[in-house]
Design a protein around this nucleic acid. Structure first.
Lengths: 118, 118
DNA sequence: CCCTTGTTTGCACTCTACTAGAACAATGAG
DNA sequence: CTCATTGTTCTAGTAGAGTGCAAACAAGGG
């Protein structure tokens, strides 16, 4: 599982960390039952504060993706359903189809997609 | 066209206002050529600052949904495809939100969008 | 017991969204 | 032309979220 973080991004660091786990789970590079790196360790490795990592972990717990226990660490809930990347792809396909119907050029469509990211 | 806004929500007021117009356009309760309420007027009506309304309008302009001119106000782009375009924008925003949850970078998202065009 | 690891608390800093007030510049109506 | 309307721009202040830093606390495991 790869953790990547961009301090310059507008999306909060904690959310980015949570997104890494979600993404890894979605593309198979992480599996249910797997243990996440300890908060302090990951924080050090990313050059980020412990609170920030913990906040990402908390969010994942709220989503039911991981379990947190003192002394044991963070573990991906065994048997949890992975968030699907397939749905994102299918949504993009629908959008692309509509764009084609509207006669948008590729450049216009991509520009629209870019602004959609906020 | 109905404007509803929730100050307690985590999504910015300006974005909420923009979403109102997008939705109204998509579901037919607003039509191309129609004029949006004046910024100061809408701001008063919603109990919100003028700048906040204007920010929402600006975003709609970036998306190509409305035109803004001094003295004339905000007008929904009088193209026949405006409602469809509004729906396309909404779908792209949903897709963008999912991409963010999965930790995709802007480049990865745009690449995915590009390949979706076939 | 000791070490690891999550949990909680308190303070300070920065950035964004929002509010507030004012002045400016097109536009259209009279 | 005159003038009210309306978007545009500017400055400045406020509140909250995100983050960093530091410390103390509690549960689990060797």
């Amino acid at each position: 599982m790869l953790f990547r973080v961009d301090p310059a991004s507008s999306v909060p660091l904690g959310d980015q960390i949570a997104a890494c786990v979600r993404g890894a789970l979605a593309d198979g590079s992480a599996e249910p039952g797997e243990r996440l790196p300890a908060a302090r360790e990951l924080a050090d490795s990313l050059g980020v504060n412990v609170h920030t990592v913990l906040r990402g972990y908390q969010r994942l717990r709220e989503e039911g993706l991981i379990e947190l226990r003192r002394g044991r660490g963070a573990v991906i809930v065994p048997g949890v359903a992975a968030p699907d990347r397939a749905r994102l792809v299918s949504r993009l396909r629908e959008a692309a189809a509509e764009a084609r119907e509207l006669g948008l050029t590729e450049a216009e469509f991509l520009e629209l997609a870019r602004t959609s990211l906020g």
